[in-house]
Computed example of a mutant assay.
Amino acid sequence: MVAMNEDRTKKVLISYAVTSGPLAICLICCLCSYKMAFTKNLRAHAGERIYSPLFPLIAYSYRNIKYLYIMFFVFGICSGIYLSMGVIGILRIFSLEMFFGMSWAITLYVATYQMVISIISIHRFISSHQSPELRRDPTRKNVFLLIVFVALLMIFKDIGIGAWMLVLAFGKDFRLEKLTTVMLYYSVVYITRQILLFIATIFQFCISEAPKSHSEYCVVTDAKYIGLVKIILGTICFASYLLNFEITIASTLFFGIDMFLVPVVVQITEIRANPNVIIPTEIQLEPLIV
């Protein structure tokens, strides 16, 4: 039993390193180019003549990639050095605490960004099938409140699950089956969020209208590529469960890739974007004749 668990742990670590390692390297390599591209495209994001309602989401993603991931790598390297050298003291504890704190903050950012772009994509699909007179684009305030609401929702979800695990861990009748129930609940919540992303991705491919701003172009592209990758990995994971073949590796790929997939897609989208070819258009409201 112990040997089986060790073998499963090795598979998880190897599969996660093989998939997330290249993405992490790509994230680091693209960081400087992403900063320069964002600065260059900042006027297109904010807009001179056309109000860009999705800019708060773009800025939220930029700040998280710029600060959280840098601190994550710095404290991760420091923690690894302290552990390998056998250093015992406040520096080691501080580095480990900051590393795990940054990991949780990044997980929160990734979950929030996926949820927000999913909701915006579904709203865009519904709006595209309405007449121009009935369309209502979200405002900056709407997008900002949506980010705050989703982020708070994710925070309370993590706090609830963490408190649940602590109660079970320090309870008198602790059993591993109860902890498995908590993880199953977490997986169900995660899969529900991914299904929303899948729906948003399919809707984006069904919209023929071009984005009205550079910010909308970035959100549309991110939703398409992040969702497409997760659909492929989700299909592989589901097939592995049905065939009972390498379930651990498939689950690790599906559940663990978000941490680096989302920022890499955001970076590449911003770097490859050419806002000069995106011509913002205004919707002119006309009286509806019934």
Rank of each mutant, 00 (worst) to 15 (best):
V2S: 11
M4T: 03
N5K: 13
D7F: 13
D7P: 00
Y16Q: 07
Y16R: 08
A17V: 07
V18E: 03
T19M: 14
C26L: 15
L27I: 02
I28C: 08
C30E: 07
S33C: 14
N41S: 12
L42F: 15
A44W: 08
L54Q: 07
L57H: 09
N64T: 02
I65G: 00
Y69E: 01
F75C: 10
I77H: 05
G80M: 11
G80L: 10
I81F: 15
Y82D: 11
L83F: 10
L83I: 05
L83W: 11
S84M: 11
G86H: 09
I88M: 06
I93W: 11
I93S: 09
E97G: 12
F100R: 01
S103K: 06
S103M: 08
W104F: 11
A111T: 06
V116K: 02
I119H: 08
I122E: 00
R124C: 04
S127C: 04
H129E: 01
Q130C: 07
Q130H: 12
S131M: 12
R135V: 14
V143I: 14
V143Q: 04
V143C: 06
M154Q: 14
I159H: 05
G162A: 12
A163T: 10
A163N: 11
M165Q: 13
L168N: 08
G171N: 10
R175D: 13
L176A: 09
K178N: 11
K178F: 14
L179Y: 14
T181R: 04
V182Q: 04
L184F: 10
Y185K: 01
Y186L: 01
Y186P: 00
Y186S: 12
I191S: 08
T192L: 12
L196M: 13
L196A: 10
I199P: 02
I202Q: 00
I202M: 02
I202S: 00
F205I: 03
C206E: 04
K212E: 04
H214A: 13
C218A: 07
V219W: 04
D222I: 08
K224R: 15
L228H: 01
V229G: 03
K230D: 09
I232V: 15
G234T: 06
T235H: 03
I236D: 01
Y241A: 01
L242K: 14
F245Q: 08
E246P: 00
L253R: 03
L261N: 05
L261Q: 05
P263K: 01
V265F: 10
T269K: 01
A273C: 05
P275M: 03
E282C: 01
L285C: 01
